[in-house]
């Protein structure tokens, strides 16, 4: 419906095209970007650059964050020490660290990837920790009564029990990472969808800006859907314990 309003506004010339481009102009711009590219970089290259960054940053964040969160969930002392630190830094937008990260790691891929790592890391720590501490005591007791050792309970009860929280954390983290990455690319990158938009803007190519926003939105939705499908596939028992 929104699309129809948008289409009509262009057809009837209601909106000023220099300020807000219509759908036909946007699609034309998108076609040009996909085939010839803009400033010699094609859409596919921008998308690939963005996806590569998010997959590396998010991936390392999950791989490091989950064990740390599990350890915090299992050990009261660790939890007591690190909870306040996590609480302190969690609310700070990851983007606020980008100047320092550029200073430390230089201009290039590393600052953005490190920033995404931290964004995912905090979310995954909290998720994994909540997954462990949320285990129903009767499940642990039942396992003990069935003759399981501590190690066995850890592997066969606590870990599978924490999986739903971990998956939900991953879904949240990938959303946050995607948005943060685009914002970071706006200010400090040569490639990636954010950078493409920034360049398009400086050349007053508003139709490319709008096209970029749509692509970002679509990829955001696709990433979320992938995570949801993964949840359905790997943890069908979620929320039914």
């Amino acid at each position: 419906m929104l699309f129809i309003i948008w289409l009509l506004s262009e057809a009837l010339g209601i909106a000023d095209p220099t300020f807000f481009p219509g759908p036909i102009e946007t699609i034309q711009g998108g076609w040009e970007l996909a085939t010839d590219g803009f400033q010699r970089v094609t859409l596919a290259e921008h998308v690939f650059a963005s996806l590569r960054r998010i997959l590396i940053g998010f991936g390392i964040g999950v791989v490091v964050g989950v064990p740390v969160g599990l350890a915090m969930g299992l050990n009261n002392t660790l939890r007591a020490i690190f909870d306040p630190l996590i609480e302190l830094f969690r609310p700070v937008p990851p983007l606020a660290f980008i100047p320092l990260l550029i200073l430390w790691f230089g201009i290039g891929e590393t600052p953005a990837v490190v920033m995404l790592f931290f964004a995912a890391f905090f979310i995954m720590v909290i998720a994994a920790r909540a997954g462990v501490t949320g285990v129903r005591l009767s499940k642990v007791h039942a396992a003990y009564s069935l003759g399981a050792s501590k190690q066995q309970i850890l592997r066969n009860v606590i870990l599978p029990n924490a999986l739903p929280e971990i998956f939900v954390g991953m879904r949240v983290a990938i959303g946050v990472c995607w948005g943060t990455l685009v914002a970071a690319e706006l200010v400090g990158a040569q490639t990636g969808l954010g950078a493409m938009i920034w360049t398009a803007r400086t050349f007053f190519r508003n139709e490319l800006v709008v096209f970029g926003i749509i692509i970002i939105g679509v990829i955001g939705v696709i990433l979320d859907l992938i995570m949801r499908k993964a949840e359905e596939r790997f943890i069908p028992w979620r929320g039914r314990g």
Binding site: A142, Y144, W237
Partner: peptide, 19 residues
């Protein structure tokens, strides 16, 4: 002195392993 498999336990609900 602690839990053991000579004593089985049945809880009200939610103690099955849903995975």
């Amino acid at each position: 002195t602690g839990p053991g498999q000579d004593r089985g336990m049945v809880f009200q609900q939610g103690a099955l392993f849903e995975w």
